[in-house]
Design a protein around this nucleic acid. Structure first.
Lengths: 223, 223
DNA sequence: ACGACGGATAATGTATACATTGCTGATCGA
DNA sequence: TCGATCAGCAATGTATACATTATCCGTCGT
């Protein structure tokens, strides 16, 4: 079960490389919501021409991570408080569905993976490694969702996570917030092991709700 | 209230024009699921270079309407029967939500619009104008959804409609299928007028279910 | 002082040319 | 006859050059 360190894969095309880097910067709010992505500058920084940059931006525009204004360029999507609420509400619906469909089919390997990711979250939280925390947190939850076997559903949920991600960078920076997450994960994993759909859904709702409320407190939470 | 005939707007950029045309061809199955979109040929046909074609394709890839294989190009997305089922299931969840949120806020103008679109659907069905039927049918349903005021929700539902659209071109070509749709719309509009969420949701489920089952009958419905 | 016009600048949008990759099919060898 | 190698082709991927558009700001006129 030990994962070999992920093999280094050079993306086959420049646009893919740009896409990965752009997405990373947006999700970590390194490129903050609202700011324009200057093609020329970004291209030069990555050592490619503007073409692959534009193509990567188009992908992100299709996903909703950036907005395109003709003759004005690409801007990291901003979400109002209301829109973030909407995102969380839709997540509630879709994640509940994923649990209903998938929990019965969750394998022992899947449960073990959840435990492993819960460990990773906890240790990352202790060390204050926000990036690792976010990554592990995501893997923890998506192990559960992916048990549903529904690719489209999982992809939608993933996009919804992405939408809120830039706003959570600051959330996990806070020690108190980091502290409560691991124990909630333990409860979730335990409920999953018992195979109780209602419990898992309830815990998930609570977990998500706490994250959402924390967001409302921290952020410039208006329109 | 009379809509002026929609003003002709030349898209500000070539890519937008290409995007519209490409999407149209995919949704009408003029470009059938699975086929490759040859950039050179398509560009020449539209009288532009390959660049805007590629950029439009990237958008569609981000939306999931085409798949991108590095060094191989872009292919209209194919969906297995299972995947289409998944799409309908997610639609059920999200459309119900839209109705719950929006029905109370549906204005008289909105109700009138639904009636008007129902008329349009019926007359298009009688004349056998499949394209007009599909367009009006879509407007009918989305008038209802948009009453929710939730942009993201509506956009997601819209993408789910798009995913199944290529497979429904043949569905509406059948006279019998065209016949049942208008009466169901009347019932829906009536229930909406009464403001009854459970009834609207129930009718919507039935309506959608019929469409889905019809799809299963007609299509190469395997994996 | 205020507003309008206009040119300079800087960004985006597009075409063209070139590089690279993948495939096909023919040729060569055993 | 079978298989492998390689040349040619056809498609995609990328860079560069050019066209177009928006914006900024100074000047001019009133």
């Amino acid at each position: 079960m030990a994962k070999p360190p992920r093999a280094f894969v050079r993306p086959p095309t420049a646009q893919e490389a740009v896409l990965v880097e752009l997405r990373r910067r947006i999700l970590t709010a390194e490129l903050a919501p609202g700011v324009q992505v200057l093609q020329e500058a970004f291209a030069e920084e990555l050592g490619v021409s503007r073409v692959p940059v534009r193509e990567a931006l188009k992908i992100l525009a299709g996903e909703g991570l950036v907005r395109y204004k003709p003759q004005h360029g690409y801007f990291v999507t901003e979400h109002s408080g209301e829109e973030l609420l909407e995102v969380y509400r839709i997540r509630q619906l879709l994640e509940a569905e994923a649990v209903r469909v998938g929990l019965g089919g969750l394998t022992l390997a899947g449960l073990a993976a959840m435990d492993a990711e819960a460990d990773a979250v906890e240790s990352a939280a202790r060390q204050g490694d926000v990036a690792a925390l976010i990554a592990a947190n995501r893997r923890f939850h998506f192990t559960l969702f992916e048990a549903s076997g529904r690719k489209r559903l999982v992809r939608l949920i993933s996009q919804l996570w992405d939408a809120a991600e830039p706003y959570r960078a600051s959330y996990f920076a806070d020690q108190d917030n980091r502290a409560t997450v691991p124990s909630e994960h333990r409860e979730l994993a335990a409920a999953a092991r018992r195979g109780s759909v209602p419990e898992v859904v309830r815990l998930l709702d609570a977990h998500r709700g706490r994250g959402m409320r924390a967001l409302q407190g921290t952020e410039g939470f208006s329109g």
